[in-house]
Nucleic acid binder design. Structure first.
Length: 480
RNA sequence: GCCAAGGUGGCGGAGCGGCUACGCAAAUGCCUGCAGAGCAUUACCACUCCGGUUCGAAUCCGGACCUUGGCUCCA
């Protein structure tokens, strides 16, 4: 398995530190507002990484932080007249709900910054003792000039980092020094006691305190979006490698590309900001996941409802095959008998794995799925596929769907083709009546019933013999 | 200014030295009572521009141009 590393810029062969165990850390949200679909892109990408690593047989500990101590939280709380703590809890809860709705279900533990203050303080104390940090009247800072590797992840030299857009705090030794501990300012409510008086942690230190607590000084994979490379991840490297003296902090740095809208980064000031909740009002989670996974995780993607619609249509095509297979399996004698494992199945699984092994190339993995769908459809038409193979294909699609976190089988998701309730019974009744009309060759009325049902989102699919199938229209979709 | 990611067919989006990516949309045919779904075929066969290397370049090298992002708030 190969993973592209931001550090080296190359695809590296993957080797876990502890045999079968993988420690994966991904930067979580600052919970001061609802998460947007850009966050969703990143978390879906790493959800699939975790799913695939598990599929490969690794034991994955996927850790994510929740930043619940932060300037923005304090500011927003003041604006909305709530306490920073209750604001943070509220948006943390909404974040977790959003992730659930998106099928992002593989994080093992969410670690709150506020619950790791002793570990944070401990790390800062060690940094001061080792001479990598110093105290001023405003706080404690990391001395960037003492850490010679500073800039190695973002490929910037010390001179490059001299430039700055925001005026640095004058008490700092170097403009690039970053805050480890912020001393309490007037009226601040959220503070903790520390050797430097009351205050709160800086932005970067929580992550290394958390990862050190659960993983130790070194771990396998650290993920996040591109914008975190500098300064955040650079700071993490500096803090932890300086503290422990062990290098590297992380073996594989993985960074996701942005989700853009009309070619621009999503931001509130541009008015192109869509929250996950708003998006899920308009389209289903599977279509969005499918859209995200259609591109490689590192590529920038451009969000539009049209693009989601295209993904939805593609997803429908795969689901259609599952329906066709179910219908085939219900009609005995329509396919060959064989005990052999079908070559198509073997090949598709091998290719899927090969592509996922290549830096989680979901684009190509999906191509493999589509190729399988095409081949199987053709062989069903030609009647050259065995029942065993049909069963195996169905199982394989379920397996692929599980890795990608997308359901390829709509039968798992509710009423499609089976009468489950009174509505289903009524639909069945219409279909039976219509079938009688068809037998009498009353095509006009039969077609009218089909059209009217279609308007009610019930799609009839006639077959040569029998009453045919029906399904609820479009298991995925977009409303504008 | 520095660093990074990009510019590919009607659209989305891979590939990164030679073989149709794939998907969506479209056209035609097969199938069907018709439709849908499916299959097959097609689309004067696309790669920002200019040089170069090569038997051969979207893919490598050089040089332009353009877009987006990061440079201490950012997924």
């Amino acid at each position: 398995m190969k993973i592209q590393s931001t550090m080296t810029g190359n695809k590296e062969n993957f080797l876990a530190i502890h045999n079968n165990r993988i420690n994966l850390f991904v930067c979580g949200p600052t919970v001061y507002d609802d998460s947007h679909i850009g966050h969703a892109r990143t978390y879906i990408a790493f959800d699939v990484v975790a799913r695939y690593l598990k599929y490969k047989g690794f034991s994955v500990f996927y850790l994510q932080n929740i930043t619940d101590v932060d300037d923005k939280i304090i500011q927003r709380a003041a604006e909305t007249n709530t306490s920073p703590r209750s604001l943070a809890r509220k948006f943390e809860q909404r974040y977790l709900e959003d992730m659930q709705a998106l099928g992002v279900t593989n994080v093992n533990y969410y670690a709150r910054a506020s619950e790791h203050i002793p570990e944070i303080i401990d790390q800062i104390v060690r940094l001061i003792e080792l001479g990598f940090a110093y105290e001023t009247e405003t706080g404690v800072y990391f001395d960037e000039s003492r850490f010679e590797d500073f800039g190695k992840l973002s490929h910037q030299s010390a001179e490059d980092l001299e430039k700055h857009r925001i005026e640095p705090d004058p008490s700092k030794r170097n403009p690039g020094d970053f805050s480890l501990w912020k001393k309490r300012q007037d009226g601040e409510q959220v503070t903790w006691d520390s050797p430097w008086g009351k205050g709160r942690p800086g932005w970067h230190i929580e992550d290394t305190a958390i990862t050190e607590t659960y993983f130790g000084a070194q771990y396998d994979i650290h993920g996040g979006a591109m914008d975190l490379i500098f300064p955040h991840h650079e700071a993490e490297i500096a803090q932890m490698e300086a503290t422990s003296g062990k290098k590297p902090l992380v073996r594989y740095w993985m960074h996701t590309g942005f989700l853009n809208v009309m070619g621009e980064k999503m931001s509130k000031s541009l008015g192109n900001f869509t929250t996950i909740r708003d998006m899920l009002q308009r389209c289903d989670a599977d279509s969005f996941r499918f859209f995200v996974l259609s591109s490689h995780y590192r590529s920038p993607i451009d969000f539009s409802l049209e693009a989601i619609e295209q993904s939805c249509s593609g997803l429908e095509r795969i689901r259609q095959l599952v329906k066709i297979i179910d219908a085939q399996l219900e009609t005995p004698g329509d396919s060959l008998e064989s005990d052999e494992i079908d070559a198509n199945v073997i090949e598709a699984r091998a290719k899927f794995i090969e592509h996922m092994d290549n830096d989680f190339n979901t684009t190509y993995a999906l191509r493999t799925v589509f190729e399988l769908v095409r081949d199987v459809n053709r062989r069903i038409n030609e009647k050259t596929i065995s029942r065993r193979a049909l069963n195996d294909v169905k199982e394989l699609l379920r397996e692929f769907g599980e890795i990608l976190g997308v359901s390829f089988s709509v039968t798992e998701k509710g009423p499609t083709g089976t009468a489950e309730d009174q509505t289903g019974n009524l639909i069945e009744l219409f279909i039976e009546i219509r079938q009688k009309l068809r037998e009498k060759k009353d095509w006009q009325l039969a077609d009218e019933i089909r059209n009217r049902l279609n308007e009610l989102n019930v799609v009839l699919e006639d077959e040569k013999a029998g009453k045919g199938k029906y399904s609820i229209k479009k298991s995925c979709g977009v409303s504008k």
